[in-house]
Computed example of a mutant assay.
Amino acid sequence: MADGADLRRMALALPGTTEAPHFDRAAFKADRIFVTLDSSERTANFKFTPDEQEFKCQLAPEVFKPIDNGWGRQGWTTAMLAEATPDDLQAALEMAHAHAVGKPKRKRSDGLVSGSSSGAESRW
């Protein structure tokens, strides 16, 4: 079985990945956040496409479950780390990471940039 230390090690090994605080979680991002780890290091939330989410949840329902809110409909999926194998984590991390790389920040109609990792928005 896997744990938070496994997820952290594997995530940070992916190209361009950094770790930063994100509310009560640790966020791992390349150009965008692709996975977060809860403070107890028991669960992680992955950003999949809705189709990938459905696939992962059918493949390993004891590991992956859609988040039960609006974020879940966008593909955010909770993984129970104690139920996951290292191979489950590696495959999920690679899948989520692929969508986070090369995503440019979006300019809003008011000229501000959205997608800032710090939560601050800038015109620059």
Rank of each mutant, 00 (worst) to 15 (best):
F34T: 01
E62S: 13
P15N: 06
F23P: 04
I67G: 09
E19W: 03
V63G: 00
P61L: 02
H97R: 06
K65I: 08
K65L: 10
G4C: 07
E94D: 10
G16K: 06
M80R: 15
V35H: 01
W76D: 01
D31L: 03
L59R: 15
T36R: 00
E121M: 15
V35T: 10
A30I: 07
R123M: 14
W71K: 02
F28K: 04
V113Y: 11
N69G: 03
Q58A: 14
T17C: 07
I33H: 06
Q90P: 00
P21V: 03
G4A: 05
C57H: 06
G75K: 00
A13P: 07
K103I: 11
A100V: 06
R9W: 04
D87Y: 07
H99V: 08
L59A: 14
N69I: 08
L89K: 00
F55Y: 13
R32F: 06
F46P: 01
P15A: 08
G115C: 02
Q90R: 14
K103S: 07
K107Y: 09
A27G: 10
A120K: 15
G75Q: 05
A13V: 10
E62G: 13
A79S: 04
L89Q: 00
E52K: 05
L81C: 06
F55W: 14
K103R: 14
S39E: 14
V35Y: 06
G119N: 09
V113L: 15
R8F: 03
Q58S: 12
K47N: 06
A2L: 03
F55C: 11
G119K: 05
L37W: 06
L12S: 07
G75V: 03
V63C: 02
A60N: 11
D51T: 14
D24H: 12
P66L: 05
A96K: 04
F55V: 15
S40E: 15
S118V: 10
E83K: 12
A13Q: 12
M1K: 13
E121V: 14
A27E: 11
G75L: 02
A100M: 03
I33G: 01
M80Y: 11
A79D: 05
T18F: 13
D51P: 08
G115H: 01
L7R: 01
W124P: 07
L14T: 04
F48L: 04
T78I: 13
T17E: 02
E54Y: 08
G72I: 06
L81F: 05
A91W: 15
V35K: 00
A96R: 03
E62C: 03
A27V: 01
H22S: 12
G75Y: 09
S118F: 07
D31F: 04
K103P: 01
Q58P: 01
E121F: 11
D87H: 09
L14H: 02
A60D: 12
G4L: 06
F28G: 00
D87F: 08
D3W: 02
T17Q: 04
T43M: 10
P50H: 10
S40C: 09
T49Q: 03
R106H: 11
T43D: 11
Q53M: 01
R106M: 10
R9K: 12
E121N: 12
K107W: 13
A27M: 07
E54S: 13
A92N: 02
